[in-house]
Design a protein around this nucleic acid. Structure first.
Length: 600
RNA sequence: GGGGGCGUAGCGAAGUCGGUUAUCGCGCCGGCCUGUCAAGCCGGAGAUCGCGGGUUCAAUUCCCGUCGCUCCCGCCA
C-alpha cells in the first residue's frame, strides 16, 4: 500500500499542481469508455477528479481500466495536466485539470449496486437504510454528516470557551417512570432487576449542579420508547446544558450566543438575536401552536364576541358552554375551491375540531359558507378581522385549546400549501410561561406539563394548591420554523417546594422517595439554584440541512417502527442469553393480552 | 390504538373502469466508438405485478384478509 498511498485528495487539484506526479485513492464514480480515450471520475470525501487513460497508455493501465466498474475502490498514479480549453468543466472544483494515469490498481471490487451512489438517486428510504454505507457515500449525505460534525464541534468550542465542562452521565440508570416509556436493560447479576436507558440526563445534570460544576454540558444519546415521527425516533442526541446561579434570561442569553456562533460558523448564516419571546398563551392565541412557524404572518383572531352577535347557533352554543370561537383571515384565498376548503376542514378535524366554518369576502360583503348567519353584522366582521375583498375567513369554535390548535393546524397547512414561508430563513422564538400542570381527564388528576422539577413563576408560589391549572412555570421552549428545538426550565432546589409539587400531582412522600429519593437526598446538602435547557441536536441539524426528517442527518437511524434495516435490530436473542438474564419471553396473543399471562 | 398514502425486473416509475407477448428510463451482460463529464450508438438478459384467499371462462387489474414501508392523530420533548 505504501506505494499506492494517496498524495492528494480528489477535491484539491488545481492548475497549481500542473505536471506534478500524484497518487489518488477513491471510488469509481463514473466510467466513460470512448474506445480509445477513457475517463474515470474518481470520488472521495473531498470531491471528484477526472482521470484520463489515453489510448497510448501502457498495456497494464489499459487492462486495469477495462475492468473498472461503479464503486470499485482504486488507486491511481498519474500526472496532473491542464484540460484543453474547450474541455474545462466549470461545474467541477477540479474541472480545469485532469490526471493522466500511468498506473491503476484495483484495491477492491464492488458488486452490482442496489442503487446508484448519486445525488439523483431516489431509492426508497428503507433500501437506503439497508445499504446505508452506500447511501452515505453520496455527496448529499456526506454534506449532512459533515454539517452535523461541524455543529457538534462549534457547540463544544463555544461552551468550552464559556467555562462549561463536558461531563458524561451513565447510559444505564434507574428507571423513573415519568413521561415517556423507558427502554430497559435487564441485570444479570440482579435477577428481576433492570436498568433504564435515560430519556435525558435530567436528574444527573441537576445533581452535577449540587456537586458544584456550575456549568455543565453533554451531547448525550437519549432514549424514549414511543412511536416515531419524522422529527423523532427512539434514540436521539441532545445538547444538554445546565447552569447554577442563573435566571431564565441567563439561559436565553447563553443559548442565543451559542446558536448565533453555530449558525455563523457552519452555515455562514447571521442569526438575529435576541430571539422574540411569546408567552404560551400568546403563541396559542395568535398562531394556534406552542411551536409557531413565524416565517409567515397569518394570525388567529379572537372571534367569540362577534360570533354571538350573529345567528349561527352552533357558535352561540359553543360560547355559552364556555368555549371560544377563533378566526383566521387568509388574504387573497377567496378563490379557493370548495374542495380545497374541505381539505382545510379535514386538517382541522384531525386536531379535534368538529368542523371548519368559512366565508368569503367579496365587494358585496360576505358570501358562501356560514355567511347567511352573519348578513346583519357583515360590516362589523369585516372590520374586526380587517378583511378585504378576495379574502377567505375560516373559523373554529371549541374549547380554547382545541379551537386554537385546530385553527393553528389550518394555518400551518395554508403556510405550506400557499408557500408562504421563506425556505432559506430561520425564525427563532422563545415560548415562555407554560402552564406547570395539565389536567389529565383519564386519570382525573393533575399532571406535570413538562417535568416535576420545574419552578413555578414566583407570583404563583402562594396559590399553587388552590388553582394548579393557572400556575405558570419558569419553563421555556425554543422554537424555529415550526419545530420545537429545545426545552428547559429553572429548577426547583427547595425540597419543601418540591414536596408541594409532588403532592399536587398526587405523589405521596413515600412515592416521591421511591422514585426520586436520590435527588431529594442530594437536595438536602446545599443545592444551588439552577436551570438549564436541552436543544435536540438532530432536529437542529435537520433544519439547518433543509430536511424534514431527522433520519436524514443520523448516520444509522431507525425507521418509523424502530427497526434498523441495516443490522436488522431488534432481533430475538439466544435462549442462553435470556436464561442468564433470568428472562422468559411471553409471546403476545392476538389481542395483545400478554399482560394477563404475565400476572399469574 | 386509529386514519391516509405507497408496494409492478437490481433501482425509479408507467399501465390495468378484467382479455394475447406487462411498458419506459437507469443499472446489469455483450459489442462499437479518441475528449467525455448523467458520454453516445447497437444488441441482450432480467418480473411468481408484496403475500394469501375469493369472484370469474379469464385477475397485476375487482373483493376480502395479511405483511412491509411511509405520513399524520393519539403517545412522546
Amino acid at each position: 500500500m505504501e506505494h499506492l498511498k494517496r498524495t492528494v485528495t480528489c477535491g484539491e487539484l488545481t492548475e497549481k499542481h500542473l505536471d506534478q506526479e500524484v497518487v489518488l485513492n477513491g471510488w469509481v464514480h463514473r466510467n466513460r469508455d470512448h474506445g480509445g480515450v477513457h475517463f474515470v471520475d474518481l470520488r472521495d470525501r473531498y470531491g471528484l477528479t477526472q482521470i484520463v487513460i489515453d489510448e497510448d497508455a501502457d498495456a497494464p493501465v489499459r487492462e486495469a481500466t477495462e475492468q473498472l466498474k461503479f464503486e470499485y475502490c482504486i488507486a491511481v498514479r498519474g500526472s496532473v495536466r491542464a484540460r484543453p480549453e474547450s474541455m474545462i468543466n466549470p461545474e467541477m472544483a477540479t474541472g480545469k485539470v485532469e490526471v493522466a494515469a500511468s498506473e491503476i490498481t484495483i484495491l477492491s471490487r464492488c458488486a452490482t449496486l442496489p442503487f446508484m451512489v448519486d445525488e439523483r438517486s431516489d431509492a426508497r428510504e428503507d433500501l437506503r437504510l439497508k445499504y446505508r454505507y452506500l447511501d452515505l457515500r453520496s455527496f448529499a449525505m456526506q454534506r449532512k454528516i459533515r454539517l452535523r460534525h461541524e455543529l457538534m464541534f462549534r457547540v463544544r468550542e463555544y461552551l468550552h470557551s464559556h467555562e462549561f465542562y463536558e461531563i458524561e452521565t451513565p447510559t444505564m440508570i434507574r428507571s423513573t417512570p415519568e413521561g415517556a416509556r423507558d427502554f430497559l436493560v435487564p441485570s444479570r447479576l440482579h435477577p428481576g432487576k433492570f436498568y433504564a436507558m435515560p430519556q435525558s440526563p435530567q436528574l444527573f445534570k441537576q445533581i452535577l449542579m449540587v456537586s458544584g460544576f456550575d456549568r455543565y454540558f453533554q451531547l448525550p444519546h437519549c432514549f424514549r420508547d414511543e412511536d416515531a415521527r419524522g422529527d423523532r425516533q427512539p434514540e436521539h442526541t441532545q445538547i444538554d446544558i445546565e447552569m447554577s446561579f442563573v435566571s431564565r434570561d441567563d439561559v436565553f442569553e447563553l443559548i442565543e450566543g451559542l446558536f448565533h456562533h453555530v449558525f455563523q460558523h457552519t452555515l455562514g448564516y447571521e442569526l438575529e438575536v435576541p430571539f422574540q419571546r411569546y408567552s404560551y398563551d400568546e403563541a396559542m392565541n395568535r398562531f394556534g401552536s406552542d411551536k409557531p412557524d413565524l416565517r409567515f404572518d397569518l394570525e388567529l383572531t379572537e372571534f367569540s364576541e362577534t360570533a354571538v352577535a350573529g345567528e349561527f347557533k352552533v357558535f352561540q352554543d359553543t360560547v355559552a358552554n364556555g368555549g371560544v370561537i377563533k378566526a383566521l383571515r387568509v388574504p387573497g384565498a377567496g378563490q379557493l375551491s370548495r374542495k380545497q376548503i374541505d381539505t382545510l376542514e379535514q386538517q382541522a378535524k384531525v386536531y379535534g375540531a368538529k368542523g371548519l366554518a368559512w366565508m368569503k369576502v367579496t365587494d358585496a360583503g360576505l358570501e358562501g359558507g356560514v355567511s347567511r348567519f352573519y348578513a346583519e353584522i357583515a360590516d362589523r366582521i369585516i372590520t374586526v378581522l380587517g378583511a378585504s375583498p378576495g379574502d377567505l375567513l375560516v373559523f373554529v369554535g371549541d374549547s380554547w385549546k382545541t379551537a386554537c390548535t385546530a385553527l393553528g393546524a389550518v394555518r400551518s397547512k395554508l403556510g405550506r400549501d400557499l408557500g408562504l414561508a421563506d425556505p432559506t430563513a430561520f425564525r427563532f422564538c422563545w415560548i415562555i410561561d407554560f402552564p406547570l400542570f395539565e389536567w389529565d381527564d383519564e386519570e382525573q388528576k393533575w399532571e406535570a406539563a413538562h417535568h416535576l422539577f420545574s419552578m413555578p413563576r414566583e407570583e404563583y408560589l402562594d396559590t399553587l394548591e388552590q388553582d394548579p391549572g393557572a400556575v405558570k412555570g419558569d419553563l421555556y421552549d425554543l422554537v424555529c420554523n415550526g419545530y420545537e428545538l429545545a426545552s428547559g426550565s429553572i429548577r426547583i432546589h427547595d425540597p419543601e417546594l418540591q414536596r408541594r409539587i409532588f403532592a399536587i400531582v398526587g405523589f405521596s412522600l413515600e412515592e416521591a422517595e421511591r422514585r426520586f429519593g436520590f435527588l431529594l437526598e442530594a437536595f438536602r446538602y446545599g443545592p444551588p439554584p439552577h436551570g438549564g435547557i436541552a436543544p435536540g441536536l438532530d432536529r437542529l441539524v435537520m433544519l439547518m440541512a433543509g430536511e424534514t426528517t431527522i433520519r436524514e442527518v443520523i448516520a444509522f437511524p431507525k425507521n418509523t417502527v424502530g427497526v434498523s434495516p441495516m443490522d436488522d435490530s431488534p432481533t430475538e436473542v439466544d435462549p442462553k442469553q435470556l436464561e442468564e438474564l433470568h428472562l422468559r419471553v411471553i409471546a403476545p396473543t392476538e389481542n395483545g393480552a400478554a399482560a394477563e399471562t404475565l400476572k399469574e
